[in-house]
Design a protein around this nucleic acid. Structure first.
Length: 821
DNA sequence: AGCACGCCGACT
DNA sequence: GTCGGCGTGCTC
């Protein structure tokens, strides 16, 4: 049998995934001598396009020769065994379909950079051509001159030399004149770290000959010392590194060189790991409390995904640890997902105590080479547990038995740019179906969608309502500001009870955290005469006065201007500051508690390098009595000595403008409250509000998650908000954003009858807040020049119809339900 | 993502 | 007249 190309049908063809944003896979041909080596999941080197060379991943192997074109040969096979499994590949395909992106984009997100190779074009001088420099243009002359200096220039450097973007036409001319050659270079980026090791000549392996050797060396005491040290080290190590031998013995390298010359020692090179292994042989044990054990048993018994809803300090981690131990015993791997790197150091130290060297860490702060090593150790099964941030869902697990997603509500599980705009939590849930692995979603403040799934019976709801080790939940009290004002008890922004509690804590030498969700000094400046308020020129948002810089800032776009003294509208001078931010609170505190040490933690005070870390250290070292902060204080501040939390104005949290989401308000309030009283005694929380009857505040006091959840659920359903629908963000590229926005809003109004269409186009303050939901961004370009609202509407409508036509999308912009699988 | 091709404005 | 800007389409 043979096809039209004349090749027998036994020729192997490969469909490969290129690490590019391209919709298709491409077919290449395998030279017969490599037939035995191809396998799905291995990387191959291919030429793609005129001269670029890439590393691509084999996705399918077949024998059908392409009909309409001649397939190119693969240039090389990079791996001796597959770097990803067929299961992983299936996962990639799901991510690509669900998040509406190309497989190449998934590949880019999944593979560590060092495993993806792209050739670099460089140019070199053609020595066989005589160059008449007078015939060269100025730009050509510059290139030739540069080549005479350094013989080889990268294409990217050519742009720099010429100070312009497009350089190909010029290079092409030089190529035609045969003045230069072009070369493509592909470099293997991962380089194993090598170290030199020392070995004793086998002749001296028995005690007798060793004794003779020592006698022979008697006159060279340093050599004897070195040999002795070597033999001592050999007792505990198989391989002895040269560097360590020299360091430990304190003897110079020349002595060792002599011994190698005498053929007493051999030196050899070996690959070593870059990953630090701190072997803490401190294997700690603990007992689960009754409620923890109950939670553990529930998770164990059910086939469903478990949502572990545990209040702050309820000891969710212990439950995870026991579950991880259990899957390791079954010979399987576990994945422990965390939202941020900052949290990994704390948890890794904790987990190392139980899992020692079985645990690997994976996050973006690792360099390329280190990531490849973690990758390989997950692949070969060295690591039984992987602790990592969102990209670790792509690691090549062998047999994944458990996925723990801690702080599952966290927005940082979502990648919003570039594609794939995936949510690691949702993706991990799909991944679990491929491996039939158990899933635990853990949070003190579960996300709406997970809670919905749990209440609806899709997940199993496991609750831990007690704090671990007998620590009591904080006492939460409300301070009704209306009452306080009526009774004239209020002092600047502090109610009498707040002041009393702060005083009490200060007297007890305990620390206090005060939460005010506005930065700056005053969020509004208003003219008392005419009612004018200062607004941002771009954003239609009021400007916040910052005392420190004495400027008025827009917190959306960063616009700022000098403070005004006279009203620009009426010329009056009765400008009044309305509202208050963290700067004002800090000021007021200083006057009420002059001897207290007060610090502020917000975006402004932590901008400087290390400022945040220094603040944390000061708090830890008890150099701060009162910390005033924005929502930054809601996360990760676990200090035993903080006994009291004050929420200065809870009303600024209600109706948090995140999709009218009460979820966020509740989470913030709950998280801040959770900081109070950790070990020794019960914490105190004071919530100041003008609306003490508000159900969020009520539910926080009663630790009643359901109350908040029910209301939020109803609200979201009514307004078609996420996460009940999948969102696609549409970016409309045009200078006239006003017309675009108006057209988008108008279209949304029109289509609302037939579609649950809610958000459209570039309404940027809103868009910036939905990035935790949208699954893709579609860019619509409208040509230059004048546009009309009608034109924009037509273009958008077409686009929506197009998206609508795609398989599982039943409606346009806002589609699908909470269930990612 | 590159890179070629092709169409237009502003320069020798 | 062409150089080089950018929009469009193809790459196995």
């Amino acid at each position: 049998m043979s096809d039209h190309t004349g090749h027998t049908s036994s020729t192997i063809f490969l469909d490969v995934i290129l690490p590019l944003a391209i919709a298709k896979t491409y077919t290449y041909r395998v030279p017969a001598e490599w037939n035995a080596e191809v396998a799905v999941g291995k990387r191959v080197v291919v030429q793609f396009g005129k001269n670029k060379i890439y590393s691509a991943l084999i996705s399918t192997i077949h024998h059908s020769a392409p009909v309409h074109y001649e397939a190119k040969y693969i240039l090389n096979i990079l791996d001796s065994s597959p770097i990803i499994s067929p299961v992983q590949l299936e996962f990639w395909k799901w991510v690509s379909a669900y998040y509406m992106c190309n497989l190449g984009e998934v590949m880019n997100a999944a593979l560590p950079t060092a495993l993806k190779l792209t050739s670099e074009t460089s140019i070199i001088l053609n020595k066989e051509t005589e160059i008449d420099k007078n015939e060269l243009t100025d730009k050509e002359y510059l290139i030739v001159e540069a080549l005479e200096m350094q013989s080889r220039i990268m294409m990217s450097d050519v742009s720099k030399i010429l100070e312009q973007k497009t350089v190909y036409p010029i290079i092409r001319n030089l190529l035609e004149k045969k003045i230069v050659w072009v070369e493509e270079e592909l470099e293997e980026r991962y380089k194993p770290r090598k170290a030199v090791f020392i070995k004793l000549n086998e002749e001296y392996n028995d005690a007798g000959s060793l004794k003779i050797l020592f006698e022979e060396l008697e006159r060279s005491p340093k050599q004897v010392d070195l040999l002795q040290k070597f033999i001592q080290l050999r007792k505990s190590n198989i391989d002895i590194e040269k560097k360590i031998l020299l360091e430990e013995s304190g003897i110079g390298a020349s002595v060792l060189t002599t011994l190698i010359k005498k053929e007493i020692f051999y030196s050899y090179e070996k690959n070593v790991s870059r990953l630090k292994i701190d072997e803490s042989d401190l294997l700690e044990t603990f007992e689960l409390s009754t409620s923890q054990q109950q939670a553990y048993d529930m998770i164990d018994a059910s086939d469903k995904i478990s949502l572990l809803h545990g209040v702050t300090s309820s000891g969710k981690t212990q439950v995870y640890i026991r579950q991880i131990e259990s899957v390791i015993q079954q010979g399987k791997q576990a994945l422990f997902l965390l939202p941020e790197i900052a949290l990994t150091t704390q948890i890794i130290n904790r987990l190392r105590k139980y899992f020692g060297t079985d645990i690997g860490v994976y996050h973006s702060k690792f360099n390329d080479n280190e990531r490849v090593e973690v990758w390989n150790k997950a692949l070969d099964g060295t690591y039984k547990v992987i602790l990592g941030t969102r990209s670790s869902v792509f690691l090549p697990f062998k047999n994944l038995g458990l996925i723990v997603i801690d702080e599952e509500h966290e927005g940082s599980y979502k990648q919003y740019d570039p594609a794939p705009r995936y949510n690691a939590r949702d993706s991990a849930i799909f991944l679990s179906t491929l491996y039939s692995s158990k899933v635990i979603l853990g949070s003190a403040t579960p996300s709406m969608e997970s809670y919905f799934n749990a209440k609806g019976g899709k997940y199993q709801l496991v609750e831990l309502k007690e704090r671990f080790g007998g620590i009591q939940l904080p006492e939460i009290m409300i301070s009704d500001l209306k009452e306080e004002i009526k009774r004239k008890k209020i002092e600047s922004n502090f109610s009498s009870i707040m002041i009393a509690r702060i005083t009490e804590a200060l007297e007890n030498k305990e620390q206090i955290i005060l939460f005010q969700n506005r930065r700056g000094y005053a969020p509004l400046l208003m003219c008392n005469t005419c009612g004018y308020t200062s607004k941002c020129v771009n954003c239609d948002v009021s400007l916040t006065y910052h005392k420190l810089s004495h400027d008025m800032h827009c917190h959306y776009c960063g616009y700022h201007q000098k403070m005004i003294k006279i009203c620009p509208a009426c010329g009056g001078s009765h400008l009044e500051m309305k509202g208050f931010g963290t700067e004002k609170i800090e000021d007021d505190l200083l006057s009420i508690f002059p001897s207290a040490r007060i610090a502020r933690m917000d975006l402004d005070s932590t901008r400087a390098k290390n400022a945040y870390i220094n603040l944390l250290a000061d708090l830890e070292d008890k150099k701060i009595d009162i910390l005033v902060g924005t929502q930054m204080v809601a996360k990760g501040l676990d200090f035993d000595n903080v006994s009291m939390i004050g929420i200065i104005n809870a009303d600024t949290l209600l109706n948090y403008p995140d999709f009218r989401s009460y979820e966020r308000s509740f989470q913030l309030m709950e998280q801040v409250s959770g900081r109070a009283g950790r070990r020794s005694k019960q914490g105190k929380v004071i919530i100041q509000t003008y609306q003490p009857e508000h159900y969020i505040i009520r539910s926080v006091i009663q630790h009643n998650y359901d109350l908040m959840y029910q209301t939020e659920l109803a609200e979201r359903k009514q307004f078609h908000y996420p996460p009940f629908y999948r969102l696609i963000k549409i970016d409309v590229k045009h200078k006239d954003q006003n017309t675009v926005q108006n057209a988008a809003r108008a279209l949304a109004r029109e289509l609302k009858q037939e579609l649950p269409l809610r958000i459209l186009g570039p309404e940027f303050p809103m868009i910036s807040r939905i990035r935790n939901y949208y699954i893709n961004t579609i860019t619509v370009k409208i040509g230059k020049g004048e546009i009309s609202a009608q034109k924009v509407k037509d273009i958008l409508r077409k686009k929506i119809e197009l998206i609508n036509g795609q398989k599982e999308f039943k409606s346009a912009i806002i589609v699908c339900d909470v269930d990612p699988v």
